[in-house]
């Protein structure tokens, strides 16, 4: 929509909670999934994205517009990505990694998973279980043995009061 040159083609994307978004085709085709639909000629009407909710899709479109406005300069793109992700909490990042995977956007996927890794790096085992929804299947004895074996890796872990 913001594009000023020529007559840009605009696509309409629909989230799984029925929100509609307009986005320039040139930005939307950063997603290989969308690009394939466009190339197959099935992007005439509304493109339904069944695995992405409106909140996440809004975020992804902000990213699409932002990154496609930057000329081919990897440094600038990287700093845009860093800035874009800097204020996102874990839940948002987790939604985005799923969306990036579904939309097949490898640059976003890489950046988000690196960001998640950075957020996780100093977190406790309990934090990781909660955030990833993982059930602890160790017996207390087994868990204690694993922790004892690699005691040094538990130094410098943050306390779990934030996200």
């Amino acid at each position: 929509m913001a594009a000023e040159t020529g007559t840009p083609t605009t696509l309409t994307l629909k989230s799984n909670d029925d929100e509609l978004f307009s986005v320039a085709e040139s930005a939307a085709i950063l997603s290989v999934t969308i690009r394939n639909m466009v190339e197959d000629g099935c992007a005439g009407g509304v493109i339904p994205l069944d695995n992405v909710d409106g909140k996440t899709l809004a975020s992804v479109i902000t990213y699409m517009n932002g990154i496609s406005a930057i000329p081919a300069d990897e440094e600038k793109k990287k700093s845009y990505r860093d800035k874009f992700l800097s204020d996102k909490d874990f839940e948002t990042l987790a939604d985005m990694v799923l969306a990036a995977n579904y939309l097949n956007m490898s640059c976003l996927m890489d950046a988000v998973s690196a960001k998640i890794a950075q957020v996780m790096e100093k977190k406790s085992v309990g934090w990781v279980r909660r955030k990833f929804g993982i059930e602890n299947d160790y017996t207390p004895e087994e868990e204690a043995a694993v922790k004892e074996e690699h005691k040094w890796t538990f130094e410098g872990v943050e306390t779990d009061d934030d996200n």
Partner: peptide, 21 residues
């Protein structure tokens, strides 16, 4: 996807997270 994220962690965190499950 979890593996892709784990691949980006440093060794110290990875070893700690062997205790996750």
């Amino acid at each position: 996807l979890q593996i892709q994220i784990l691949q980006k962690l440093p060794v110290k965190s990875l070893i700690r997270f062997t205790a996750v499950c």
